[in-house]
Amino acid sequence: MYGIVAMALVAVFAVAFLYALHRAVNVLAEPLTVLPAQSGWLPQEHALSRFHARWYPASIVFLAFDVEMLFMYPWAVVVAEEGMTAVVEMFLFLGALLIAVTWAWREGVFRWV
């Protein structure tokens, strides 16, 4: 565990070092404020807005399937001991999920443009 903490510290130190080095050698430390890049045109509105993520049905399907990983990881550890029953149970479950995904696919969940 300490190894991970040490590594995180090294990474934070590296980032801090880069920022400090940048501060020392760049042309002016204070950041410049500019307009967003739009080929030189003035922006008509702020870009921070309610973005229309058209793939939201796919994200719902993802969430449903992703929760399954909660079972999959512990299952992977014990499957060798539990034997065939565990394999059958898990893959019946996964099969059911995949059938649901296929249904969602036919409904056009993975196409949005």
Binding site: P43, Q44, E45, H46, A47, L48, S49, R50, F51, H52
Partner: peptide
Amino acid sequence: IALAQGGQDRDGLEMDVLH
């Protein structure tokens, strides 16, 4: 700079429009 305004998308949902 103005805030983004809503507009109807092709499905009839009101969604922000960016130019």
